[in-house]
Structures are given as structure tokens and as C-alpha cells.
């Protein structure tokens, strides 16, 4: 077995190209569990923890470029103003020592349907910057996941960063778990309002083979808010609107029964948190109007 320890991004990409079968490890919070439990026997480990470039935060054109090696702890601490949905999600990950190590790139790379960062990234319309020694490309987060624990990442590719539009409106993230700390989501939901462009973003976690957008719910709400001029007048939302939004979010889920919860409960809970999320975001957007 080999242990590859690049210290620069160029070295990392070269190592990836040379060892496409290597398992990439950054924070280790997913990979090491699999190794410890004997479920993963890698022929090589590619350790990205020494690649300083990956830990950088950058700003460009109204986007925050979050390096793939940025930890949950850093997201919580450094980004609550610009990326409130993502920061809220980071706070729900594991526990302090997990958040000290786990990275956003690792969350994406593991591609678990339950990854906590995924719903807010979907809701924000984030893009994943992917690189190999030959090329660099970006792909919308919505197209990144192709199945449970599977993504579009090629065998010679690494995640460089995530580009997330800075918030222009309220965002929220909710995670339903059967314990009040340190729990994998039974289901989760993120909502982001983008009043500058009249868009609504959603993300659903742990209720399908991949993280999902509730596109019908987004379109319904965008249509309603646009047609009624609500982005400008900021009226109260009627119950019928909130209910329909919640119904459409629940309907977008493709849940299964597992040890953490039933499919019925997941669909039900998504409706509840969708309704509440919309109320919170809209109230915040209205800014205390009567």
C-alpha cells in the first residue's frame, strides 16, 4: 500500500493521475471509518491535508470560492454572513472534533445522500470546481451526484473548490434527527431566497438516492412571488401558498425505509420543515413589516 502526501495542488493532481485507484483522504471523517471497520481496503491513500491551497477562501464576482479543504469549523466561523445556509449546515455536522477535521470537499467527494452541506449548496446554486492534470471544469452541484455515494468525479480528478453565490436574501437549513446532537439526518432541507433575481432555491438531503432539488416547489413559489409582485411588496404569504410549497417539497422526495426512519416519516417531516423554513425566510425578508 502506498501513502501519497502531496504538498501542493500540482503535486496532488499529478499523484491523482498516477494513482487513479488511490482513495483520497482529507479530514478522514468518512474514509477512516470505512477503513477502521474493514469495509475499505485501499491500495493507496492520497492525503490532501498538506495542500495549503485547498484551505483558502476567496471572493470573486459575488461568489465565495470555498477551497475543498476548508473545514466545517471554518465555514461556521468565517462564512455565516455570506453563506448562512451553509454555515448553519456546518454547525449540525457531527461534533466539534469532527467539524475541526471534516472538509466540504470530503463531504462532496463521499457523495452520501445524507451529506449535510449538499442541501444548502443545491439551494444556493453552487458549482463544483473539478480539476485533473489536464483540465479544469465546473459542474453545478445539482449535476454532481449520480447515485448513492457516486459522483461525476473521474478517476484522475480532484475537487478543487466550491463556488457559492453569496447570499442576497434569507437562507435556512434544517436537519431532522432522532437525537439532539451527533446524528445523521433522517432528512434535511435547505431553502434560499434570491430576491435579486427572483429565484427560489431548495435542497433535500437523506430522502433519495442523491441530494435533490424540489424543482416543482421552486417553480411554484417563484411563479407566485413573481406574478403577485411579492418580491417588491413583501406581503404576508397566505396559508394556501405555504401549504402548496410544503406539499411540493414533500412530493419531490424519493425516500426509503432504513434504520434511521421510515419513508413516510421522511416525506412528512420534509413537508413540516419546508413550511417552517418558508415562514422563517419570508418573515426575515419582510423585515418585521406588519
Amino acid at each position: 500500500m502506498s501513502y501519497l502526501r502531496p504538498t501542493s495542488w500540482a503535486e496532488a493532481l499529478a499523484a491523482r493521475a498516477e494513482y487513479p485507484e488511490a482513495v483520497v483522504v482529507a479530514g478522514g471523517t468518512d474514509v477512516m471509518v470505512e477503513i477502521n471497520f474493514g469495509r475499505l481496503h485501499p491500495s493507496a491513500l492520497l492525503d490532501l491535508s498538506r495542500v495549503g491551497e485547498l484551505r483558502a477562501l476567496g471572493r470573486e464576482d459575488g461568489h465565495v470560492r470555498v477551497g475543498s479543504g476548508v473545514t466545517y469549523q471554518s465555514i461556521m466561523r468565517d462564512l455565516p454572513g455570506e453563506l448562512p445556509g451553509l454555515a448553519a449546515a456546518a454547525r449540525t455536522v457531527g461534533s466539534p472534533p469532527i467539524r475541526n477535521r471534516g472538509t466540504i470537499g470530503g463531504n462532496l467527494g463521499s457523495a452520501s445522500p445524507a451529506g449535510d452541506c449538499h442541501p444548502p449548496l443545491l439551494a444556493c446554486g453552487a458549482e463544483v470546481e473539478i480539476a485533473s492534470v489536464h483540465t479544469s471544469r465546473t459542474t453545478p452541484v445539482a449535476d454532481f451526484f449520480v447515485g448513492p455515494k457516486r459522483s461525476v468525479l473521474g478517476p484522475d480528478e480532484l475537487i478543487a473548490a466550491v463556488w457559492v453565490p453569496a447570499a442576497t436574501g434569507p437562507q435556512t437549513f434544517s436537519k431532522v434527527g432522532s437525537r439532539n446532537a451527533m446524528v445523521i439526518a433522517i432528512c434535511s432541507f435547505a431553502l434560499a431566497l434570491h430576491p435579486d433575481v427572483g429565484r427560489v432555491g431548495t435542497g433535500i438531503g437523506s430522502a433519495g438516492p442523491v441530494p435533490l432539488r424540489a424543482r416543482a416547489a421552486e417553480q411554484f413559489l417563484e411563479g407566485h412571488l413573481g406574478e403577485t409582485g411579492a418580491w417588491e411588496s413583501r406581503p404576508r404569504l397566505g396559508d394556501a401558498v405555504v401549504d402548496e410549497f410544503a406539499r411540493l417539497v414533500a412530493g419531490a422526495a424519493q425516500p426509503i425505509d432504513d434504520v434511521r426512519g421510515s419513508a413516510d416519516y421522511r416525506r412528512h417531516a420534509l413537508g413540516v420543515v419546508a413550511r417552517r423554513s418558508l415562514m422563517w425566510c419570508w418573515d426575515e425578508f419582510r423585515g418585521g413589516r406588519p
Binding site: A88, R91, T92, T172, F173, S174, K175, V176, G177, N180, A181, V183, V272, V273, R276, W280
Partner: peptide, 9 residues
């Protein structure tokens, strides 16, 4: 209930 999960206010 739900703690940092932010499911109810």
C-alpha cells in the same frame, strides 16, 4: 427539540 438541527423556533 432537534437542537442545532434548527427544525423549530
Amino acid at each position: 427539540p432537534g437542537g442545532a438541527g434548527n427544525v423549530t423556533h
